[in-house]
Design a protein around this nucleic acid. Structure first.
Ligand SMILES: [Mn+2]
Ligand SMILES: [Mn+2]
Ligand SMILES: [Mn+2]
Ligand SMILES: [Mn+2]
Lengths: 219, 219
DNA sequence: TTAATTTGTTAGATCAATCTAATTTTATAC
DNA sequence: GTATAAAATTAGATTGATCTAACAAATTAA
């Protein structure tokens, strides 16, 4: 069994690898807010457990086993978030912190029951894919709203990062997953967009916001 | 904040104090399966945090603050067990192990949501009282089935200890909380009882079993 | 009431997870 | 291509939670 601490390292490494390719000790250190020497020594320990490939001064890589373990933790995290939203009535902005703790619970039955009660969901409340029982993730390819053009009609499918502040910002504007947007205009100057949706006939979204919203075009 | 380890000591101390009055280092040590010197040093730490009264060679006692903390952990434990049974479909024999982990989650909202969804239950699936939001327990006074006499009609209200084996034994005989029993006979020789209930016209229960079942008489 | 047993404490070691300070290696800038 | 800066490692200390061995106090038995 891996400790809660080890699990958090593995998960952070997995997430960084997926968004940036190679992962340096420095990046992992910043991401976990743990000093570099501590990270180095943990990497050696995880290497001894065959969860990471570690060589001095080389980028960090998870082994196949490491990726599987990471996937299983992320599965527990995302099932929990979905359960909290769908079965317990939490808002999508409130679930990450709780899931960060619940993901470490050791009880396959507990999470399989969640999965079953939820009807085997494919994504979490933020649109991120839920890994399967073997820790495998089926990556969904969406584009950023910021990459779309005036006249496009799109559906919001996921948020790139899910900080409570950002999600509350979206709540305040009735922006949520599944919503259809029409892009009316893109400001060349700062990349901000005018969009319309639901009862909102014109709403301006900054480039920062548009880069965090993942969408798919609809015919 | 108290660590998970500290929480487990406080809870064990609380439970032992309630069933045996005074608690010795030796008993706490056995109950937690942790060696006595470790327990002694943890007691000193908890004393520094004003959670236990500690004096060398004297029995261990929780402070008022310690009892409150213990009550709050037990509240989380029992709400979790109730939630697992009522909202997730687990059997009463399967929930203790999971609750043992979930009780350490730090999220008042999470547990208040459980409480609300459950309609503010007064007891857990084993009939034990759920402490209130201040950690206070309202003790219910039941008698042991073993203290009843032939002719008595009683209702099963709680089980004294809830090991999975004992609960599965009860499952196998359709014995569950709320069930009404009629005592047909008590064997003077070994204290075993013949009882009838539901579709079971005669079932024999050993003294050991009768001492674990808490009942109330019905008119 | 002394001796034996049980209970509890002290001392000192180990392991996990963290840190700071010093050093080394790699990358970047001039 | 050296000098400077950034990144990574090594060394050594700290804290929490545990252990064993040795010793001391309290209880029980003879
Ligand atoms: Mn999350
Ligand atoms: Mn976590
Ligand atoms: Mn329990
Ligand atoms: Mn516990």
């Amino acid at each position: 069994m891996n400790s809660q601490t080890e699990e958090n390292y593995i998960k952070a490494l997995f997430n960084l690898a997926n968004e940036k390719g190679e992962v340096s000790v420095n990046e992992l250190s910043k991401s976990l807010d743990i000093k570099m020497p501590t990270v180095t020594s943990m990497m050696k320990k995880l290497a001894a457990k065959k969860l990471v490939h570690y060589e001095s001064y080389k980028p960090l890589r998870l082994t196949e086993k490491g990726r599987r373990e990471a996937g299983l933790i992320i599965r527990k995290h995302r099932l929990t978030e979905m359960f909290l939203v769908e079965k317990m009535g939490f808002g999508w902005e409130a679930v990450h912190e709780i899931a960060e703790q619940v993901e470490h619970i050791n009880s396959p039955l507990f999470f399989e029951k969640m999965d079953e009660l939820l009807g085997h969901p494919k994504t979490d409340p933020h649109g991120s894919p839920i890994p399967d029982i073997n820790g495998k993730i089926e990556w969904l390819v969406y584009e950023k709203l910021s990459a779309c053009k005036p006249g496009d009609k799109v559906r919001i499918c996921a948020v790139l990062h899910s900080s409570a502040e950002f999600l509350k910002f979206l709540n305040n504007r009735d922006l949520r997953l599944g919503l259809q947007l029409r892009i009316k205009n893109v400001e060349a100057f700062d990349g901000s967009m005018q969009v319309s949706y639901g009862k909102h006939s014109v709403e301006t979204l900054s480039l920062t916001v548009c880069e965090q919203l993942l969408v798919e075009k609809i015919s």
